[in-house]
Computed example of a mutant assay.
Amino acid sequence: MKNAQLITLGDITVYSPGVLMQTVKGLGDPQTTCPVDLIEFRLDPFAASTPHSHPATEIWRITSGYGQVITEDAALPIKAGDLVFLRPDRIHHLENLANEILSALSISWMATR
């Protein structure tokens, strides 16, 4: 089947203490490219990611837990089921405020002009 392909995730890596990430390893066909970057990540209870920014636009689908996204202008409460839109080139990080793992799927892309 060429019109649908399974995507595989790479190894789990430590992004910062308490923060684990997996990136898309491949689509199974080296001739096929993916127009977005996919990352699955999780934060241990009461952990926080490192504040950072990047030129890509990003959407997170929170799959478990709850916490908050901290940006330069506010703190946004989040919980399982929420979708979060992050603008490019803005400093942000995620804090897990619970005694359970907070996990999410991130989809990001570079803007086209």
Rank of each mutant, 00 (worst) to 15 (best):
D82R: 01
I70V: 15
E58M: 10
S103E: 04
Y66E: 14
A80M: 04
I78P: 00
T23N: 14
L102Q: 05
E95A: 13
L20I: 01
I70E: 08
R113A: 14
T32E: 12
A111K: 12
F46G: 02
S108D: 12
D37I: 10
V69Y: 05
L97I: 00
D29M: 10
T33C: 08
A98V: 01
R61Q: 14
V69E: 06
T50Y: 05
G81M: 07
I39W: 05
I12G: 01
V36A: 10
A48S: 15
G10E: 06
L27N: 09
S49V: 05
T71L: 03
L27M: 15
R90D: 00
Y66S: 15
I7C: 07
I78T: 06
N99Q: 14
V84W: 02
L86N: 06
H93W: 14
V84L: 10
M110D: 09
P88C: 11
D44M: 13
T112H: 11
P35M: 02
P45R: 08
E72G: 09
T50S: 05
S106R: 09
M1S: 15
L86D: 04
L105S: 10
L94M: 14
V69W: 00
L105G: 01
D82S: 06
D29H: 10
V84Q: 02
L27P: 03
